[in-house]
Simulated scan of single mutants.
Amino acid sequence: MVDRNTQYSPTGVRTAAEIDAGLRSYMLTVYNYMTIALALTGFVALGVFQVPALQDLFYQTAMAPDGSRMLVGVTGLGYIAMFSPLAFVLVLSFGINRMQSSTAQLVFWAFAAVFGLSLSNIFLVYSGTSIARTFFVTAAAFGGLSLYGYTTKKSLSAFGSFLVMGLFGLIIAMLVNMFLQSTMMQFVISVAGVLIFAGLTAYDTQKIKLMYLEDDHPELARKKAIMGALTLYLDFINLFMFLLRFMGNRE
């Protein structure tokens, strides 16, 4: 273990102040990547919603009594867009060690854009005002939880293991409810989803912080920042989607 106040590197001993400065720079890069990805996702989602020709590529819609479009189904291309983000996550997770950091960054931006395609249907289901309100609530909650994960001295590793098991249970419950279509089970899933991803936000922030090593090669540090941004991006999106089920007003 390296002492917290000094750290050896090929160029000598680094002080605690230098280590803290490097850590802050690293975490700022993670948050910047995540923020840009969220903005890209939102831009693409809103763009698809605002162009009827693009809507028709991904969704089957019908005119509501008030003249707005409502979602009635998903096209084949829409299903491809819905499941494509998983492919990008797998590519980054298993292939990043063989990529240049610049390539990994491009894959991350492409992932964020494709995720925007898959999220564009929320504008056909919920009102714009409730989507904006839920986004700001999510941002505030995420900020507080991530700050806690960054600043706490308590190890969240045991808590994180419990949350990961809960996440697997949540996925199984969601798959089962696709067939049962139980309203009560859907409510329980939504509550559990909010709690699990709230906890994961704090846990993942601490994990990303602990992954930082001052004497990492810059290329490796950039890759770590990209994977950290991906992790926090997914925490934010999932927290937002589960909160939207409670706070969203349907069109």
Rank of each mutant, 00 (worst) to 15 (best):
A45G: 08
W109K: 00
D3G: 11
G144V: 12
I80A: 14
F240T: 05
G166I: 03
A37P: 02
V74P: 01
L232H: 01
I122D: 09
R250C: 13
R4V: 14
M184P: 03
I208Y: 01
Y33D: 09
F240S: 03
S102Y: 09
D215S: 14
F49L: 06
G169A: 11
K223I: 11
L71F: 09
L28P: 02
T29G: 08
L145K: 00
R245V: 12
G73T: 12
R245L: 08
D56Q: 13
Y233E: 04
T15A: 11
L156S: 02
Q60N: 14
G78Q: 07
L40I: 15
M211I: 05
G228D: 05
R222M: 10
G228V: 09
S9W: 07
A132G: 09
M82G: 07
A37K: 02
F111V: 07
S93L: 13
M82W: 07
G199R: 00
M227N: 09
K223V: 12
T6R: 06
Y26I: 04
L28F: 13
V30F: 02
V114S: 03
G228L: 07
F187D: 12
G12K: 06
V48C: 05
N238V: 11
L119G: 00
G149H: 01
F142Y: 11
K153T: 15
L220P: 01
P52D: 09
L57E: 09
P65C: 09
T151L: 13
F197D: 02
R250M: 15
K209A: 04
A110H: 04
T138D: 06
S84L: 15
Y31E: 10
S102C: 06
L86R: 05
S157H: 14
G144Q: 06
I96L: 03
A45M: 07
N177Q: 09
G160Y: 02
A198L: 09
Q206P: 07
G22S: 12
K209N: 05
S9H: 10
G47S: 13
S93D: 12
A45D: 03
P85N: 08
P65H: 06
A16K: 12
F236M: 04
G116R: 00
N121F: 15
L220F: 10
G143T: 13
K207R: 15
A112I: 04
F142D: 00
A141M: 15
G73W: 07
N249L: 11
P65K: 01
M211H: 08
A21L: 10
T11C: 05
